[in-house]
């Protein structure tokens, strides 16, 4: 049952990704991206990462993608897009490189991890325990606010800098 759902989500995620790459219009790409992100949220759920699935939908599919959409609207790229995907030698080479990457990564990273069916792996057991203790959000918040509190705060600063930077860059008539 879980496996079937996984394959469905994986297929839609890949289909969405393919759509992002091949879609002629930026808006089309964007919508395909949303599909892909949503499917990946499903994959996250299946991998027992419920909190990440939630923020994947809220932050990624919701906030960031809307930001992209706004920019596309702002630049008025919705209709008179250029046909920018040219099929040629460079595309073939790129495909070969990307294919090679996929092959090597799939073979080496995705190799057999020898987990028997129905057995929860060690990391999964720890996560399950943490979730039982603190709840889905608490399980990830606990290390975030203890072990990784400094990176967390720095991330906050990074976001602040990004906001200021975005304002400075996008502002008209910097005098």
């Amino acid at each position: 049952m879980v496996e079937i759902f996984f394959y469905i989500f994986a297929a839609t995620a890949l289909g969405g990704g393919l759509g992002v790459v091949l879609s002629k219009s930026p808006v089309g790409s964007l919508l395909m991206m949303v599909v892909s992100l949503a499917s990946l949220a499903g994959v996250f759920v299946l991998l027992e990462a419920h909190f990440l699935a939630a923020i994947q939908v809220i932050v990624y599919a919701g906030a960031i993608m809307v930001l992209f959409l706004f920019v596309i609207m702002l630049l008025n790229l919705g209709h008179d897009y250029q046909q920018d995907l040219k099929w040629g030698a460079f595309s073939v080479l790129s495909f070969a490189v990307a294919g090679g990457l996929a092959g090597i990564l799939a073979r080496e990273v995705g190799g057999d991890w020898q987990i028997a069916d129905g057995v929860v792996p060690p990391g999964g057991r720890a996560i399950d325990a943490a979730v039982r203790e603190h709840g889905a959000v608490g399980a990830i918040a606990e290390p975030l606010f203890t072990t990784y509190v400094v990176p967390f705060e720095i991330t906050g600063i990074l976001l602040l800098v990004a906001i200021v930077g975005a304002l400075a860059l996008a502002k008209r008539n910097v005098s």
């Binding site: 080479l93 790129s94 490189v97 990457l101 090597i104 990564l105 080496e108």
Partner: peptide, 12 residues
């Protein structure tokens, strides 16, 4: 592209 190629070569 060159970057990816480099990554591919290193991985290989």
């Amino acid at each position: 592209f060159v970057l990816s190629l480099g990554v591919l070569v290193i991985l290989g």
